[in-house]
């Protein structure tokens, strides 16, 4: 499936110093997902995060949206500049974060 990487997503990848193999494997996975597979990823459970799906690999979590599912509910909130109701077979990779070890 086509996907979009936001600038913060790309910045985070650099900041987290992910290996190029890991990045390749993550992007490859998104690239090869079909709509059925994308739909199976769970959503975060509360707050503004409810509109994001979660992809987890090791200690890393990716926040992404699947336009086909988020268009009706969240397009006014997200208001993405590229939004196209005729092309909703699209994944948007918003952010990648690492799980914390401690709460301080």
């Amino acid at each position: 499936m086509d996907y979009i990487q936001t600038t913060p997503f790309k910045k985070q990848i650099r900041k987290l110093r992910l290996s190029s193999e890991l990045i390749k494997s993550i992007l490859h996975e998104f690239d090869n997902m079909d709509s059925k597979q994308v739909s199976q990823y769970p959503y975060y459970k509360a707050g503004i995060y409810k509109m994001f799906k979660k992809y987890r690999i090791g200690r890393y979590r990716i926040f992404f949206t699947y336009c086909k599912e988020s268009y009706n509910k969240y397009r006014h909130y997200l208001n993405c500049s590229f939004c196209d109701e005729n092309n909703l077979e699209l994944i948007v990779l918003f952010d990648i974060q690492k799980r914390s070890f401690d709460y301080r």
Partner: peptide
């Protein structure tokens, strides 16, 4: 990240 997609800062692949 949400603001960036609103302002068109992204990479389409």
């Amino acid at each position: 990240a949400i603001e960036e997609v609103q302002h068109g800062n992204f990479t389409r692949l």
